[in-house]
Amino acid sequence: MDYELAIDNTPDAIPGGTGILLLHPSTGETDRLDTDFLSTDTDHLLVVSTRTTAREVEQKLEYYEVDEERATILDTLSIERGYTRRAGENIRYVASPNNWQGIADEAEAFLEDHDGKLRITFDSLTELIYYADEDQALQAVDRFLELLDEHDAVGMFHLARGVHDEATLERFRERFDGVIELGEDGEVTSEF
């Protein structure tokens, strides 16, 4: 099954099982790319956030007019930070952003519980590296990419370019079928 891509300077469509690495400046505005990815040709979507709370993700989806009825949000911050959690059918929680196995288990449950065209965004691998470490983040990526392949889904994973050295960027880059780069000036380039 193919999925449309509505992001400038990328292929018109990608096959199910494709993982995309989104390399961006640490101060880059990725919400537009993220929501363009999520809102096109999708039956159900999962937003994994190690950077913001579910409430902030909901605000982003609403602002960019992504159909929230199709969205499940995985919040990895609220429990650790002691925030009030609003339980809901479409909001799930993992106790900490360093619990990559719990995050992957929730993603697997989402993929198994939904049919049709499924998309996942992971914002962000940089935060996962910060809370866990680089090797655990790479293990998480490998598990997610296997899940995408098994379920004919697609995913986009954020990584802040300026925060990591070139060797780290390359370790992540080589695992993905496609890389989208957001420049400081907002220009988008890609390699698939």
Results as ranks from 00 to 15, higher is better:
18 T>W: 01
101 Q>Y: 11
162 G>W: 12
33 L>S: 04
103 I>S: 06
156 M>N: 05
18 T>H: 01
62 E>T: 04
71 A>F: 04
51 R>C: 03
124 S>N: 06
59 Q>G: 15
117 K>S: 13
179 V>S: 12
172 F>N: 08
151 H>C: 04
165 D>L: 00
26 S>C: 07
49 S>C: 10
121 T>S: 06
44 H>L: 09
40 T>A: 14
163 V>P: 06
175 R>L: 04
89 E>F: 09
176 F>C: 14
27 T>E: 13
90 N>H: 15
107 A>Y: 05
4 E>R: 06
43 D>M: 11
37 F>I: 04
167 A>H: 14
3 Y>A: 00
88 G>M: 03
78 S>N: 14
2 D>M: 05
113 D>V: 01
162 G>Y: 13
127 E>G: 08
185 D>F: 02
87 A>F: 05
95 A>S: 10
143 R>Q: 14
107 A>N: 12
70 R>H: 09
20 I>H: 13
25 P>R: 14
107 A>D: 12
165 D>N: 10
177 D>S: 12
170 E>Q: 15
70 R>I: 11
132 A>D: 11
29 E>P: 09
118 L>F: 03
61 L>K: 04
128 L>M: 12
119 R>M: 05
97 P>Y: 10
84 T>G: 02
178 G>L: 05
142 D>Q: 10
181 E>N: 13
42 T>K: 00
35 T>K: 00
97 P>H: 10
50 T>K: 06
169 L>W: 06
106 E>G: 02
7 I>R: 00
75 D>C: 03
129 I>N: 07
67 D>Q: 05
137 A>S: 07
143 R>M: 08
141 V>C: 11
177 D>R: 15
78 S>R: 13
71 A>W: 04
47 V>Y: 03
5 L>M: 11
95 A>I: 04
50 T>H: 02
10 T>H: 11
110 F>R: 14
96 S>H: 15
12 D>W: 11
114 H>A: 01
25 P>T: 07
47 V>I: 03
15 P>F: 13
144 F>E: 04
131 Y>A: 01
55 R>H: 12
62 E>G: 00
43 D>G: 12
127 E>W: 05
61 L>A: 05
167 A>I: 00
165 D>R: 04
99 N>R: 15
77 L>W: 07
125 L>R: 07
91 I>V: 15
22 L>Q: 13
155 G>D: 15
148 L>R: 09
129 I>L: 09
93 Y>M: 04
34 D>H: 13
35 T>E: 05
109 A>M: 04
125 L>S: 11
91 I>C: 08
45 L>D: 06
104 A>I: 10
69 E>W: 00
184 E>S: 13
111 L>E: 02
135 D>M: 09
129 I>F: 14
121 T>D: 11
60 K>F: 07
60 K>S: 14
22 L>H: 10
175 R>V: 06
121 T>E: 02
151 H>D: 06
114 H>F: 01
115 D>P: 05
40 T>S: 12
119 R>T: 02
59 Q>W: 01
124 S>E: 08
130 Y>N: 12
159 L>Y: 08
162 G>F: 12
7 I>G: 03
160 A>G: 09
49 S>H: 09
14 I>T: 03
153 A>M: 06
176 F>W: 15
83 Y>N: 10
141 V>R: 11
104 A>P: 04
187 E>M: 00
97 P>S: 12
145 L>W: 14
104 A>D: 05
166 E>A: 07
74 L>H: 10
